[in-house]
């Protein structure tokens, strides 16, 4: 995959994937660390955003504390010709954050995934049930995360994976 990212952009990404400083001019503080002007940093960030490399800048919440305690992974068996339509229905729900089509295996026949965030198990299951009724897809199950073993933000362009 030939993605061109120069060293300055990599340095900017390393900074911005951590914490934005809580000072009046946070970008100025980062720019000074990188020995560039604030304006150049802002221009580069806007460009990274425009290109889709920077998906979003802002706060990331702890779901549980924010009152979205239950996350359920809906796994669905959807015929190929219906997948686009069903995917669109799922995507329309504010409480569904991720919808992906994935490959199947003999021991894993579910090809469409929908991650639901709700305030209770009943709410999560209610949303999935509603989607099932709307789309006519009856073959699905919900997997809950019963234990968080690791959850971190990816650190791009760090030593461990630069080779």
């Amino acid at each position: 995959m030939a993605v061109e990212i120069d060293e300055l952009d990599k340095a900017i990404i390393r900074e911005v994937q951590a914490e934005l400083p809580l000072v009046e001019r946070p970008y100025l503080e980062i720019a000074q660390r990188l020995e560039i002007s604030e304006e150049e940093l802002l221009d580069r960030l806007r460009k990274l955003k425009q290109e889709g490399k920077l998906r979003r800048l802002g706060v990331i919440l702890y779901h549980r504390q924010a009152g979205y305690e239950f996350n359920g992974m809906g796994a669905w068996i959807v015929p190929a010709e219906k997948i686009e339509e069903v995917g669109a229905v799922m995507a329309s729900y504010q409480k569904i954050s991720h919808v992906y089509e994935r490959p199947t295996y003999p021991d894993w026949p579910y090809n469409l995934f929908s991650m639901v965030h709700g305030q209770s198990q009943a709410e999560v299951e209610g949303i999935l049930e509603e989607i099932s009724q709307k789309t006519g897809i009856k073959d699905y199950r919900v997997l809950y995360s019963t234990e968080e073993l690791k959850k971190v933000s990816m650190k791009y362009f760090c030593e461990e994976d630069s080779n």
Partner: peptide, 13 residues
């Protein structure tokens, strides 16, 4: 708040 910062697209990077 878990973090205040950037979320990057792994694919685009």
């Amino acid at each position: 708040i878990r973090r205040l910062g950037g979320i990057f697209s792994s694919k685009e990077l």
